[in-house]
């Protein structure tokens, strides 16, 4: 109604307003177009070029994508990325949900904020340092191996660092914090009357949780899980520090193309593949994702 109204009553006053409004929104739009849309389009175009020897062949072709599917070293990167991301997402949700629930339900109200801040405090270690500090724990002469050797649990140090397990631990550490935050904020928004009503109607604690609390917090879980997926699959630092050079993930392979091989078109093509993976994940859980607008 209001939109139709402005169309039929476009007046001098409103036109002047509109020109002003364009002026306010233009800087942000131009920045986004110049430094996000254009580079992205350029990269997408470049993924259709090809590197041969030292030269860039600027002819449209799908060779990079064909190579991606035919060369096992490249394709395996996507498989590794997907496997690690799915494992990380599932473990993180399973660990974080009970934690968020305990903070919201068992911790006294006045201590909850404190408990939450504590739960996410290591967030504020620098991103690169966070993975490094896991190295201190997991490496051959690290905390865990030394502890286990001293109490005689093992006689030889375990190979914990530079493995997929190390990568997963590093990721889970980060995302448990993130998910605890999102799930907690979902849980406390839930009116206690839902639970009272369920209990009043004869549901036991488990039934109340399974039939009432869990479904109502599912959108929050899915939003957090999607965020985990996106951040995890696009990350280079954690797998590079903790996973080492075994079982490379897609971002590592992309960085390899940039580094030694200087194959920009291939890096661009792999980036497009990475983006498509995120898009598929988005479409898969789109119906649960509520992007709230006040």
């Amino acid at each position: 109604m209001a939109d139709a109204g402005t169309l039929s009553t476009a007046t001098a006053l409103e036109d002047a307003d509109r020109r002003k409004a364009w002026g306010f929104v233009a800087p942000a739009l131009l920045w986004t177009i110049a430094f996000f849309v254009v580079p992205f389009a350029f990269m997408a175009a470049m993924s259709l070029w090809k590197r041969e020897g030292r030269d860039l062949v600027r002819v449209w072709n799908f060779d990079n994508y064909a190579r991606f599917f035919s060369e096992n070293a490249l394709f395996q990167g996507l498989v590794n990325s997907l496997e690690i991301t799915v494992i990380v997402t599932v473990i993180s949700v399973l660990l974080a949900y009970p934690l968020a629930w305990i903070i919201a339900e068992r911790v006294p109200k006045r201590l909850q904020r404190m408990a939450l801040i504590l739960a996410i405090l290591p967030f504020w270690t620098s991103y690169v340092v966070r993975s490094y500090s896991w190295l201190l724990v997991l490496s051959k002469n690290g905390v865990i191996n030394q502890l286990f050797l001293n109490i005689g649990l093992i006689s030889e140090p375990l190979e914990l660092a530079s493995t997929r397990t190390a990568t997963v631990i590093g990721f889970v550490h980060f995302f448990v914090m993130l998910l605890t935050l999102t799930i907690y904020s979902n849980l406390i928004q839930l009116s206690p009357n839902y639970r009272r009503a369920a209990a009043d109607l004869g549901a036991n604690a488990f039934q109340t949780f399974w039939h009432v609390v869990l479904p109502l917090t599912l959108p929050g879980i899915m939003t957090g899980a999607f965020l985990t997926f996106v951040l995890c699959i696009g990350d280079y630092v954690t797998p590079q520090i903790l996973g080492g050079n075994n079982e490379l993930v897609l971002p590592q392979i992309i960085m390899l193309q940039l580094g030694r091989r200087a194959d920009f078109p291939m890096a661009a093509a792999l980036s497009i593949v990475l983006m498509l993976a995120v898009t598929v994940a988005y479409l898969a859980c789109a119906r649960w994702l509520k992007i709230e607008r006040a």
Binding site: M1, A2, A4, G5, S8
Partner: peptide
């Protein structure tokens, strides 16, 4: 007069 779409 003030008209909003179909509403007067």
């Amino acid at each position: 007069s003030k008209i909003f779409g179909a509403f007067t």
